[in-house]
């Protein structure tokens, strides 16, 4: 049986979580390790850390976060952001991350996917794709740099290529929906999920718990990623899973 996953995403810069995360009784709401441990206890299935550190001088800070997380958190976690070369992936995986996520660097040099997959296996390589509907509505285009830079690449074609090169999972973000709280782009999610054989995580636009259900049931996603609805204390992982289970989604109960 295929089992869905609920995945909170934490944005980290210089070793600190960006945007205050609103858990009432945390000692340090900015500490990614403490937050990750909390999500583990709450029943999250996986975690994603997105390192948005601008300066490469601070890369070692993320290695430290990964090492401390691996000693405290016993669910899988992925690290994305700033992985430009095989060496970067090696550092993050050796520090204890289960997967690395590549985005811009893979579009710029697709061979990076082959390199990481060859050394660590396809299960370690997540290809993150930021997709935006084309003006004529005929499909979706890959964007870089948080939706600012168009690439001219067709999203479905790029995702197919990424899987052929060794991506073991796709993290798909709709740039049209990201930050809107209007729900996933279901049409995009389903188009991707139905065209590749690897797991696909849907991201971008979650504003209600029903959106998580819709991502799996209507979008056919293997996992659903969300940030703000969990971070700001609006909903717990347990509430999300209870609703999913009540609507027939197979998921690990809390």
């Amino acid at each position: 049986m295929e089992v869905a996953r609920v995945i909170p995403c934490l944005d980290v810069t210089n070793g600190r979580v960006v945007k205050g995360v609103n858990f009432v009784d945390l000692r340090d709401a900015g500490d990614p390790v403490e937050l990750a441990a909390r999500y583990d206890q709450q029943g999250a299935d996986e975690l994603v850390f997105l390192d948005i550190t601008a300066s490469s001088d601070n890369r070692n800070t993320m290695i430290d976060v990964v090492e401390r997380t691996a000693a405290e958190v016993f669910i899988p976690f992925t690290v994305g952001g700033g992985i430009r070369a095989l060496e970067d992936a090696r550092g993050i995986l050796r520090a204890g991350a289960d997967k690395v996520s590549v985005n811009t660097s893979a579009v710029e040099r697709p061979q990076l996917i082959n390199e990481i997959a060859a050394e660590f296996g396809v299960q370690c390589v997540v290809c993150a794709v930021d997709a935006k509907r084309t003006a004529d509505g005929s499909g979706w285009e890959v964007f870089l740099h948080g939706g600012r830079t168009p690439t001219g690449k067709n999203a479905l074609e790029w995702i197919t290529e990424a899987v052929q090169r060794g991506a073991g999972e796709i993290l798909l973000t709709s740039m049209d929906r990201d930050g809107t709280r209007e729900g996933f782009d279901i049409e995009l999610t389903r188009a991707v999920c139905d065209s590749v054989g690897v797991p696909v995580i849907a991201s971008g636009g979650v504003g209600t718990l029903q959106h998580l259900v819709d991502g799996v049931v209507q979008g056919h996603a293997s996992g659903v990623l969300a940030a703000s609805i969990f971070h700001f204390g609006e909903h717990t992982i347990a509430e999300a899973k209870a609703l999913m289970i009540s609507q027939g989604v197979v998921i690990r109960p809390v």
Binding site: V198, P199, S222
Partner: peptide, 10 residues
């Protein structure tokens, strides 16, 4: 008729 890898809780 399942996705590969199996990358999930079971």
């Amino acid at each position: 008729n399942v996705r590969r890898p199996q990358m999930q809780w079971n």
